[in-house]
């Protein structure tokens, strides 16, 4: 085997790939190596003294960690489900043949995705004020609530408030991907179904959903990863208080507490959880190559 001999294509590819590869290696692989070493060190600051898995066993015993896991699961589960369902409905609505100004609807809805995360969080924080807050006022004026709800200041509601914002912020992305997916379904399929007299739900079940399966998976995995990694939204709205501390917030707050051993161990845990889902995403996306 002439292992080192490169084909003509490979030589060219190498030139084009190398710069990008080196930059990402420097900015991504090296930091990952660094944080993993830190998590196995006695003194994380100097990365000195091999601690084995001591930092991890300590982390697992810490009640804050199990709470962060539960919170991450809750935030991720509900926000992904909500954003997916809402985004899909929006996509179906916009994709309906008789609906006009498709581009306009799409870009208006897309605004909540495009605005800076800090603005998202700050504006919702301002909407969610308990006393004289606009969100409470709107709900009261349509009769959904009778007394003011302390959205961000009670452990009962804070997580739900943040989930609402995450759905609001990510549903447009689902809408976008799904409209693209729906447009790829050939019209003839629907036309022949119409001839058979199939209803909307029938078509949804037997044509639309199966044919958008792949893009659905990609979309959901993307949402999952974003939700697990979401930081600025929660940080600005509650700083992880009111029982809203997810893994991201735990890492940041441990770092703030000068607890680098714990911070690096929780970071590695977050990495493992993220990469678990990312692996599925990659498997789906790359299979064509």
């Amino acid at each position: 085997m002439k292992r080192l001999s490169l084909s003509k294509d490979e030589k060219k590819a190498l030139i084009y790939l190398l710069p990008g590869f080196i930059v990402t290696a420097l900015l991504i692989i090296y930091p990952l190596y660094y944080i993993i070493t830190m998590s196995f060190s006695n003194n994380a600051i100097n990365q000195s003294g091999f601690a084995g898995i001591a930092n991890y066993t300590k982390l697992f015993k810490n009640p804050q960690f199990s709470k962060a896991i539960v919170n991450t699961a809750k935030f991720t589960g509900f926000s992904v489900a909500g954003a997916y369902v809402l985004g899909y409905i929006l996509a179906l609505a916009i994709n309906r043949r008789s609906i006009k100004l498709k581009g306009l609807w799409r870009s208006l809805i897309f605004i909540s995705w495009i605005i800076p995360g800090v603005v998202k969080a700050t504006s919702w924080k301002w909407l969610f004020r308990t006393d004289g807050g606009m969100f409470n006022h709107l709900l009261q004026s349509v009769g959904l609530i009778s007394s003011e709800v302390p959205w961000l200041t009670s452990p009962k509601f804070a997580m739900w408030a943040i989930i609402i914002v995450q759905i609001w912020a990510t549903a447009p992305y689902v809408m976008l991907l799904m409209t693209a997916g729906l447009q790829q379904i050939s019209k003839e399929l629907y036309e022949s179904a119409d001839l058979d007299g199939a209803g909307f739900l029938h078509k949804l079940k037997y044509i639309t959903l199966p044919l958008t399966k792949d893009i659905t998976f990609i979309c959901i995995l993307m949402l999952l990863v974003w939700a697990i990694n979401e930081f600025s939204l929660i940080w600005i709205m509650t700083t992880g208080g009111q029982n809203t501390s997810t893994l991201s917030l735990l890492v940041y707050n441990q770092f703030k507490m000068l607890n680098l051993n714990m911070a690096s161990a929780s970071a590695v845990m977050q990495l493992i959880v993220t990469m678990f889902f990312a692996a599925f995403y990659v498997k789906l996306t790359v299979k064509e190559d």
């Binding site: 991504i28 930081f231 991201s248 590695v268 977050q270 990495l271 990469m275 692996a279 990659v282």
Partner: peptide, 23 residues
């Protein structure tokens, strides 16, 4: 090629809070 595209795709999903400290 497959491994490399895996690598590029995966790196898109890394949590910034994890990279923040070493960066």
């Amino acid at each position: 090629k497959k491994v490399l595209s895996l690598y590029f795709l995966m790196s898109q999903m890394l949590p910034l809070t994890v990279l923040m400290i070493p960066l």
